[in-house]
Structures are given as C-alpha cells and as structure tokens.
Design a protein around this nucleic acid. Structure first.
Lengths: 195, 195
DNA sequence: GGGAGCATGTAACGGGTTACATGATTGG
DNA sequence: CCAATCATGTAACCCGTTACATGCTCCC
C-alpha cells in the first residue's frame, strides 16, 4: 500500500508546462470537457501564457488522468452524442498547491519576431518596417480591448479574483506594448538625424 | 540550369525560426564561428527573442550552408586547433532582404509562468506568491541593466543602429515589466479589501 | 597542474504542432 | 439543406533541448 494520498512525490515537478495549465483551469472547480478547456484557455491563458492546440489538450487530460490528478465521466447529452467531462481530484489539488508554493517558476519566454525585424532592419526597407510596426500596434490595441473585456467579465465572479488580476495585468501589458511601439517608431524615423 | 541566383524561391519561408536568427546575426557581415554566434545571441537576441542552444546553432549553420545561404572555411589558429568560420553569401543576403520585407512576422510568443502563478494563486499561499513576485522583480531589473549596458556598447558601432534600438526597446520593456509587477503586488495586497 | 573558457559535435528524447478523420447538433 | 460549431481523437513530423563526448589553449 503506497501512501501517495498524503505526500506529493518528488516527480510532481515532471509534468510538462501544458499539463499544469490544464490542471490549473480545472482547479477552478468546474467540470469541463476538452473542448471547454480550449475555449477557457483562449479567454484567459492565451493573454499571458499560451493557448495549446486542441489535440494537445486531450493528450494532457489523458496524462493527468493517468496520474490520478483528474477524473472523467461521460455525459450523455443525447442518445448518439456524448462528451467526456473532467474534474480535478484531491490529489490534483494537492499537486496544484505544491506547484503554487514551490519556488522558482520557469523562466519567462518572450519570442518577439517583430523586434527581430527591427534588430535586423538593415536588410530591408524602412518604410515597410514602419508599416509592420503600425499593423502590429493596431493588433496589440485590439488585443488589449479583448483582454479588458474578459477582465471585466471575470471581475464579478467570486473565486476569480486572481484570474481577473492576471487579465488586468495583460491589459496593462498590451497598453505598455503599444506605447513602446510608438517609441520604436520615433527612434526609427529619426534614425538618420542622430550621430 | 536552375536560376535561383536571381529569384528567391517560394520555399524560403520554410526556414525554421532559429535559422533566421542565425542568418540574421551573420547578416551583420562578420565571419563567425558557431561559438561566436552563441555569445552574440546571448548579448542581443536573448533580450527580445531567445538564445538557442549551442548544438542547435551548429545544426542551423549546416542547414544554412546546405541552402547556400552561408559559406564556411576552416581557420587554422594553431597546428592542432581549428575553428570553422561562417560568412553570409549573396544568396543569403537576398533571403534576408526578402524575409525583412515580406509582411506578417510570426505571432509574438509570451509564456509567462509568473503570471500563471498569479492566475492560479487560489491554490497557494499569498505570502509566498508575493515573495515570488519580489524575486522576479529584482531579476527583471538586473536584466534591464544588462540590456542597457549592451545597448550602450552597441550604440557607437556603425551599422548597429537598429540593433541598439532593439536593445533600447528591451531596456524599456524590462523597466515596464518591473513597474507592472509593482502594480500586481498592490492588487494582491489589497485583495481582500475590495468588494 | 588544473580549471575556465574555446570549440564542435552526436544521440536520445519529447513536447507540441499541423493535418486529417469523423460525426453529431444547431440555426439561418 | 448547408454551414458553423460542438466534440474527440490519430498520425506524422520536427524543432529544439539536455546530456554526453572530446580535446584544445590560456592563464594562474
């Protein structure tokens, strides 16, 4: 009789990042299908983390279930149609608690192809670069609005306090980003004036 | 007789991201070894893109050479020691120009494990969360200083204008990030006061 | 002499993606 | 009736990582 009912084994850190994200979504306590999780991810996770592909989510759910961190049951909506609903277990909650309290989160990953363009802009045309920046800025501001909407929607829900704080952060992040692009634009336009 | 001397074929977009980054470094015109490229990447790319692993750089260099975008020659420093220096070709420059001017850069990737913690903070202890944030903030400010140093170093070099602009962006990015963490801290500390 | 840095690679592995397949339900 | 959405999954693929291996040179 192994007693992993009380203690989280050392290899809990071994879960891939996406597993934690999916388990995190389930830690809000609702019973969700893989499909639900995908949409949930797109409305929150996607703003500061990333939205895993559909197929990956199913893979992670199976992985989580094999670890006993979630359980599933099949819901029969109609005769010929069904969906599998997942729910976090006590073990899953314990792992989440442990994950939240262990130090050293993974390093932040920023991969910014637009900045890569700026950095290597000596290879291309400046006017086109500026257009790329303008497009990007518009896109960022549109994203900021969506983030703010999701934040506002979640701010009322009890138990979603931290979630809405994270979305507030995302809104700010995107507004700051838009401002920085403005700054970039100036730098590039005044490029030949300086020494 | 295929004439890819004049026109860049349609599959130039097929290079993986790291290839472009490595080719981008070589587009500054210097002859570099794989080792040099790694260090170069750490001092600029790493701040807004990411630093590929050593082994990956060698892989990409071989790939680039097989496409004729770079050429290499062996430099015999001493009798028993040598290193392989890579240099961009005209074809490589053409591909870079094309890359710079084609629209739609890849989407920006942000994977922020610290925010993931905040978002799922209902699972853990608030005091520990605040400590994670403080540590992260210190780290960010230290990074900002390094970015600023590299920016200052590169600002004097002719031909590195865009590169130093990109590093200026990184410095601002990291300062903004630190400020946002401060904001986050406040939100979390006042968490129970609000409705 | 020995450790740090220089320099180049191989091998195993896996996380995650895209593309594809399948079929039901809902609403215009 | 047809398109969009719901819903779940398989298969192929590959980028990139870690770990390991090797040996040099420079400098204290």
């Amino acid at each position: 009789m192994d007693d992993d009912a009380e203690v989280v084994t050392a290899d809990e850190a071994e879960l891939p990042a996406t597993s934690w994200a999916v388990l995190g979504i389930l830690s809000f306590g609702e019973q969700l299908s893989g499909y639900d999780i995908k949409r949930w991810a797109e409305q929150s996770l996607a703003f500061f983390y990333w939205a895993p592909s559909q197929s990956q989510i199913y893979t992670e759910l199976r992985r989580l279930e094999s670890h006993g961190l979630v359980v599933s049951r099949v819901e029969q909506t109609h005769e010929a149609k069904s969906r599998r609903l997942y729910e976090i277990t006590d073990t899953g909650r314990r792992w989440m608690r442990d994950w939240a309290d262990r130090l050293e989160p993974d390093p932040v990953v920023l991969k910014h192809p637009v900045l890569l363009r700026v950095w290597a802009a000596h290879n291309g045309d400046r006017t086109r670069l500026l257009r790329v920046l303008d497009d990007y800025r518009d896109e960022v501001l549109a994203r900021a609005e969506r983030a703010e909407q999701h934040r506002a929607n979640s701010s009322a829900v009890p138990g979603w306090r931290y979630s809405s704080i994270a979305l507030g952060w995302s809104t700010r992040y995107l507004q700051d980003e838009a401002a920085r692009i403005g700054w970039l634009r100036e730098q590039i336009e005044n490029e030949d004036e300086e020494s």
